[in-house]
Amino acid sequence: MTDKISVDVFKRLVDLASLELPEGESEYLRKELNNQMVSVEVLESIPVDAETGTAAHGIPYTAMNSPVPREDVTRQDPHREDILKQAPELEDGYIVVPDISHEELD
């Protein structure tokens, strides 16, 4: 059985997920992903065509059961201080971030 997720594809996925994996974790994760793909492949056998609809929630949302959208208004959040103090590093009410790296996109 050929692995759907090769070592190279796995490395790309890890990069896209912004993960630095602890030593020894990669092989386990890749093996499990490939095992999961055995199940996902079952979907290939479902008789679907362009006419088969899709379901986003299972239950349909119509004008009858959907709330009216809220008014788009700005307001001061009452929890501003509580929210800000969760940040690992703050300065004068701003969240501090390290240098933002830049790379050329493919």
Binding site: A17, S18, E20, L29, E32, Q36, D99, I100, S101
Partner: peptide, 23 residues
């Protein structure tokens, strides 16, 4: 830099289940 902060934070603080689901 920020990318390295993301990678090190997420790599150390997520367990294997969230990692599997993200990947």
């Amino acid at each position: 830099d920020l990318r390295e902060l993301y990678r090190k934070t997420r790599g150390a603080a997520f367990g294997v289940e969230p990692k599997l689901r993200m990947l």
